[in-house]
Design a protein around this nucleic acid. Structure first.
Lengths: 172, 172
DNA sequence: ACTGTTCTATAACGACTACTACAGAACGGT
DNA sequence: ACCGTTCTGTAGTAGTCGTTATAGAACAGT
């Protein structure tokens, strides 16, 4: 997972993988099938991580809070030095289907928390905007941006939701 | 340029290039040096194109108009079917330096048109936000988004600048 | 101790990579 | 018509790619 994450699919060779895993090629093929299957398992493991941005979207009770939770998680994770920079899914050309699905998941989540005051924000467009931000932030982190730089951009992006006071839930 | 644009550097082989150009490998090497040099020339040609997003940023007399011009151009170009989807520079991992430089160019342009009413928007952060949006939009287009989808996201992104009336230039 | 199974590593496969030595064709100048 | 230069294609370099056939080691059951 780490190797695919930092180099991408094409630039990660079986040789790199066997050296890193400490096993020989036939063992790798016996265990995983082929390179694509190993990659699929790595991606599945990545997406199942509790640190994933998608799972962060489950928090929050308003559209703004959902986006904030996702952006905060992205800022935290994409700039972390504990693992490769950026996002595996949002950086890898082979993972178009995953990005599209994540976008759909976000749109569904946004519809769940939609309030009358924010209904003017189309959930699909808002989810696409969030996905665009995440891909862009991942690239920005890969290009060397630190956590503070990511934070400022994410903060600015939240302006599309208006000020927090405007969208705060009004309990009757 | 077209091949690098649609497949990226690593996935474009000399064989692909010679077949497309209709010349043989030795001629290609005599003309361009090596693969990297040919790639550099292709990127230079791409960036010098009058359709480039960077040149679009030269228009506009306010920070908002500069961003709008860039986003409009991105929407127009990234979803065009006249050439590969998305952006060569913003999709290619090898071109980190180009992205960083484009970000600096945008920041400088934003400072030029800065007005007292918008000085609260830090030009560097705003340029980084624009760059993040462009990378994200490029990925979105590559993943299959059409012009209308890009347009809606770009429109939403402009909300960070407030409504047009607020930032419109006030002639004394 | 012997057998059958499971795991591992060495070594090789064919196909591809970027790149180039060399030979022949095409060309302009005299 | 001939020579020298420039260009082009054929063919090949060494290396890497993903993948696998094969042979030996480790191990459990009888």
């Amino acid at each position: 997972m780490r190797l695919f994450w930092e180099r991408g699919y094409e630039l990660t060779s079986i040789n790199d993988l066997t050296r890193e895993l400490g096993i020989s090629a036939p063992s790798l093929y016996a265990a995983f099938g082929d390179k694509q299957a190993l990659f699929d398992e790595a991606v599945a493991r990545y997406e199942a991580s509790p640190q994933s941005v998608t799972t962060a979207g489950k928090a929050g009770t308003s559209q703004r809070e959902v986006l904030r939770a996702m952006f905060d998680r992205a800022v935290q994770e994409y700039a972390s030095t504990a693992h490769p920079r950026g996002c595996l899914v949002n950086s890898e050309p082979k993972l178009e289907a995953n990005r599209t699905q994540n976008c759909a998941i976000t749109a569904a989540r946004l519809r769940e928390v939609a309030e009358s005051a924010e209904m003017n924000n189309d959930a699909d467009t808002l989810a696409a905007f969030a996905q665009v931000m995440l891909v862009g932030l991942s690239s920005y982190a890969r290009d060397g941006a630190n956590k503070e730089q990511l934070q400022r951009v994410a903060e600015l992006a939240l302006c599309v939701m208006g000020s927090p006071q405007q969208t705060e839930k009004i309990v009757p």
